[in-house]
Each structure stands twice: as C-alpha cells, then as structure tokens.
C-alpha cells in the first residue's frame, strides 16, 4: 500500500492491479500531475491492470475526458489495461451529448465489476471482503 502521491490522490496496489480514483475537485494541473504519477507507477510496479474509480466525479468535461483517454493509451503502451468504473448516469448522458465517446476506454459499472473484469474474482478475495450471500 502506498501513501498519497503529491497530487493527494492515493494510488493503491492490489497484486498486479493499481487502484485509484479521481476526485471532483481535481483541477487541470492536478490532473496532469496525476497522469504523470500513475504512468510512473504502472511502469515501476509492472502492473497489468489499472482500476480508476470515477464515481465521485460530478462532471466530466472535454479536458477530463481527454485525460482519461490519454491515461488509457499510455497504460496500454506500458502493457496495462485500464478500466474506468462508476460513471454516474447524468455524467454519461452529458458526455454523449457533448459528443465525446471516450474512444478506447473500457468502463465498468462499479469498482467491484471493474476488478472482476481485471481478473479479480470474489472467490479470490479474503473472507472478510466477500459479502455475497451464500445461497445454500
């Protein structure tokens, strides 16, 4: 587990996956610094997956959209797959109306499903992390 980076956005490592999230109050400079930090970490930690939780973002404008696309592209070049998870419905509607498609960016409904897509299944989690009801 790493501490907060210089942008104040924590980047955690879970096996070969990095987990991080974007905050609503991210300004442009911080967004660029975050991109830089994250690509450094992908390269240094040799991870193969990155989960970016965006469930706290109340808006995504073209700048943030571009940041997400660039991150995805750079991660791909470094051999890691990025999943952007938890986009709010109003944000999704506004993005398509803006005409932005987030080309190449993989999305997931929430962090849990994003982790599943990156190969982290619930059965692999420690018991205290498993919250699905046992059905028998």
């Amino acid at each position: 587990m790493s501490g907060p980076t210089s942008t104040g956005v924590p980047i955690l490592r879970l096996g070969d996956v990095l987990i991080t999230g974007l905050l609503n109050e991210l300004d442009d400079k911080a967004a660029l610094a975050f991109t830089h930090e994250l690509t450094e970490r992908i390269s240094a930690d040799r991870v193969r997956g990155v989960l970016i939780d965006i469930s706290r973002l109340e808006i995504i404008d073209s700048f943030v959209a571009r940041t997400l696309m660039e991150l995805t592209m750079m991660a791909k070049l470094l051999g890691a797959r990025v999943i952007v998870a938890g986009m709010r419905p109003p944000v999704a509607i506004t993005l398509v109306e803006l005409g932005i498609e987030l080309v190449g960016v993989e999305t997931a409904l929430n962090a849990e499903q994003g982790m599943a897509a990156l190969g982290w299944h619930q059965s692999q989690q420690p018991p205290e992390g498993a919250h699905r009801d046992s059905t028998r």
Binding site: D28, I59, D61, S62, F63, P90, I93, T94, L98
Partner: peptide, 17 residues
C-alpha cells in the same frame, strides 16, 4: 433536475476553459 444541472455545469466548464 440532476441531469440538467450536469449539462449546464459541464457547458460552463467548457466555456470557462
């Protein structure tokens, strides 16, 4: 409503930028 709020704030963000 929440969707219109998001539309207007996003537009403002684009224009301000």
């Amino acid at each position: 409503g929440i969707v219109d709020q998001t539309r207007v704030v996003t537009a403002a963000s684009e224009l301000a930028r």
